Computed example of a mutant assay.
Amino acid sequence: MLEASLSEASLSEESLSEASFSEASLSEASFSEASLSEASFSEASLSEASFSEASLSEASFSEASLSEASFSEASLSEASLSEASFSEASLSEASFSEASLSEASLSEASFREASLSEASFSEASFSEASLSEASFSEASLSEASFSEASLSEESLSEASLSEESLSEASLSEASLSEAPLSEASLSEASLSEALQ
């Protein structure tokens, strides 16, 4: 386990598969285009770090602090991100297929055009997040909260939405085909032009 401070370190394009950065301080570090499959960042401090275009399949970010981090165009398939904090992070065009983000804090994060298919977001918080054109196809969103989130033009086709809160969320032009909404809370939600 690496409990070192690597703030502002540049590890772009490096091959670091299976490396352990658990509990490390990596604020403002750059991992752009790095190969980090199965790497561990559990409980690491990664605020403002860059993982743009990085390969992070099966990596672990459980309980990591990722505020204002950038994951644009990164691949996080089957990654473990449970209880991680992504407040104000940029996740545009990232792929989270089959990733686990249960109880993650995603407040004010940007998921523009992100692929979140088959991912698990149980009890995750998307408050004030921007999810325009993101795809949640077949994702599990049980008890997730989308309070004041913007979900315009995203696809929730076949997503499991039982018991989640969409209060005050904007779902304009969203695709909700075959999405089960049993026990969902839609108080003050905007559903203008949503396709159901």
Rank of each mutant, 00 (worst) to 15 (best):
E48W: 09
E143Y: 14
L91W: 05
E164A: 15
F111A: 01
E33R: 14
S12V: 02
A84Y: 10
A159P: 13
E108D: 15
A34I: 02
E183C: 06
L166K: 04
S185W: 07
A194H: 02
S75V: 00
S107W: 06
M1S: 15
A19N: 01
A24I: 01
E13W: 03
P180R: 10
S157A: 12
S37L: 05
L2W: 08
S27K: 11
S5Q: 14
L195T: 14
S32H: 04
S102V: 01
L156C: 05
S192E: 12
S20C: 14
A84G: 07
F31P: 05
A184P: 09
L171S: 09
S150I: 03
E73T: 06
S42V: 03
S192D: 13
L36H: 04
S65W: 02
L81N: 08
P180W: 08
F136D: 09
E133N: 11
P180I: 03
S167Y: 04
E108T: 11
S127H: 10
A9D: 02
E14C: 15
L106S: 09
A34F: 03
S27Y: 07
E193D: 15
S102W: 04
L171M: 12
L106H: 11
L141W: 04
S22M: 05
E73P: 05
S87H: 07
A59R: 05
E164M: 15
F121A: 12
L131T: 02
